[in-house]
Amino acid sequence: MNVRDYISSGILEEYALGNLAERERLEVESNLAKYPELRNELDAIEEAVERLLERAAKTPRPELKTKIMSSLAARSKEAIVIPLPGSGVTIWKYATAASVALAITSAALAYMFWNNWKKAETNLTELIAQNQQIAQDYNVVNQRLDKIEGDLGIYDNPSFRKVVMKGTKAAPDAMASVYWNESNNEVYLSIQNLKQLSQEKQYQLWAIVDGQPHDMGVFDGDMKGLVKMKPGAGIAAFAVTIEPKGGKESPTMETMQVLGNT
């Protein structure tokens, strides 16, 4: 049987409506037991109907609830208390009444336990999902904390020199800084204010050594904290330009955003 075709025939909707003839109904039920996919589909259909009809709900008058509850109470009394005249079969009648009452009670209890179990299962699933979410959040926070601790080590380290790069005429408000360690040549970049770039563009950091620009690597404008760039020695100045994504071999001077002498 092709499950997809079976589903798209709409027979499950008919089944849920209770409109199928006995033979078709039994056939659907045996298929449901065989194919879990059908089971899921039916459940989704039924849930949709339930949600729809919840929206179409109409609250009955409160008196009706009282009436139904008292009819129920009267009915269960009938089931349990059967007045019997003294006769040979009395004991059997009482026994039957008692066993019927027992059967009703145990069915109700079984249903109640089943219901509670379902509820507990749902709660458990929710809790597991929540737990996973918290673990994920914790990891994210932890990674950020690690990063901040690492950054702090650099800010605090006296071997690093801070070089502030100020905005050029093309971008007077722009500002970024470089932390440069002259003893081991490490270079870190920190963005104070650089505008958002389009998808095709990236910023590129340059180091001016002996009057020549050297590529120090590309970065995006939305980076947070310190970004490690390429190492460099004997640097006289740092500058940032806007270049096509991936950077260029030599800087496009017209797009220079910030510049700072060491």
């Binding site: 339930e50 009809l53 919840e54 179409a56 709900a57 109409k58 609250t59 009955p60 009706l64 609830k65």
Partner: peptide
């Protein structure tokens, strides 16, 4: 009861 009464009353 709300959803079922909605059905019955329509």
């Amino acid at each position: 009861s709300g959803a079922l009464y909605g059905v019955a009353s329509r």
